[in-house]
Amino acid sequence: MRVVITGGGTGGHLSVARTFLYAFIARGYVCVFIGSSSGADKMYFENETHLNKKWFLETSGVVNKRGIGFLKALWKQGCALKEACRILKEFKPDFVLSVGGYSAAPAAFGACLLRIPLIIHEQNAEIGRLNKILKPFAKVFFSSYLESSPIKFYPIMEVFFKKARVRNAIKNVLFMGGSQGARAINAFAIGVAEELKRRGIRVFHQSGKADFVRVVEEYINEGLSVGVLDKTELESEMQQKVHCVELDSINSVDVVVFSFCKEMPSVYALCDFAVCRAGASSLWELCANGLPALFVPYPYAARNHQYYNAKFIEEKGLGFLCLEQNLFCEVLWECLELLEDKIAQVSTDLQKECAMDATKQMCATIERTISTKA
């Protein structure tokens, strides 16, 4: 089959796109990608060798834009739609897979206009605006939250399952704010690190690139022993104050700080509890790994979707939810106390919310749908 994968803007959309890409390639499909020149699309796919071709069109988000900004964004989307239609006519795909985000709009609308089967995967509990518009036109609409979804499990890379384990005690806590980091979570982690050390708990901290140097400096000022995975982002004077560590040799430090890590499955495997945003990909990867979490939704996420993602897990009794403005150290201590006697059960039940073969099941559903429509 010939497939166009489209969508992105943020890592939550793009990680799903990449998971589908690898599943499609394993089934012998020819895949191309249509995304945006802005956002994280290029970071994920510009050098992806599994793609036959890739296009990064000049688009930006339309939601929440006003006045001239709205008109400019709409104009860019219109121009990109014309280009996407040209690509679709030339490539002649069997179907278009959209993972949402503003990057998906040109190719997804193009598929509808050219009567090419459109498959949508919605990552969030609150359906995005674009996917809500396109849902009636989709041949298949996947969601991890809707009962109407033909497959409810979330598409996750197998490595997160292979690194999974049942937690029995909390010895390492992970703080992360997504690929770009989150200053509120960074500040919170720094504020509780000394008490966590006193309790015999090591900190893993994904700070984001923009805040990495400041976070390392703050930990040093707190008198904590700091390890980093990469010293090159630090000035020579600060390099002398930290240890360069590997994930399998961290016992000599109180805190492990990194701006971004491609080995997140290994980081998850080392940790016993997480404090993080509630983007869909992170949330379900944690579930697959059996890692309980306190979710602190990004307050400005479109349609407040991170809150509803976290609420879904909280209502099952498998995680904790705290709004950013209510994030105080007492919340963390309460979570750790509540989890102490049941962490093994929660860790086990989290893994039941996911399935390693979910992506294969979705591929089979797509193939049945496409062959029926042919």
Rank of each mutant, 00 (worst) to 15 (best):
S143I: 11
G128S: 11
E126Y: 12
P136G: 08
E122A: 07
S148P: 00
S148Y: 00
A104F: 07
L130E: 06
I120Q: 09
F137D: 01
N131T: 10
P150L: 03
I116Q: 11
A111Y: 00
V140H: 01
K139I: 01
A111H: 02
S149D: 09
G110P: 00
E147T: 15
E122D: 10
L130S: 02
I151F: 13
G100M: 09
C112E: 15
F141N: 11
R129L: 10
F142K: 05
C112I: 14
I133F: 14
I116K: 13
Y145S: 10
P136D: 12
K135D: 06
A138E: 13
P117A: 08
G100T: 01
N131M: 07
A107Q: 00
S149R: 07
E126V: 13
L146G: 01
G128I: 00
A108K: 00
G101I: 01
A138D: 12
G128M: 06
L114F: 06
K132V: 05
I119R: 13
H121N: 09
I151P: 08
S148I: 09
I133T: 13
K139Y: 02
G101C: 05
L114E: 13
E126N: 12
L146A: 15
S149Y: 09
A138S: 15
E147S: 14
E122N: 10
L118T: 12
L113Y: 14
I119F: 04
A105G: 06
K139Q: 06
L118M: 08
A108Y: 01
F142Y: 14
L113H: 12
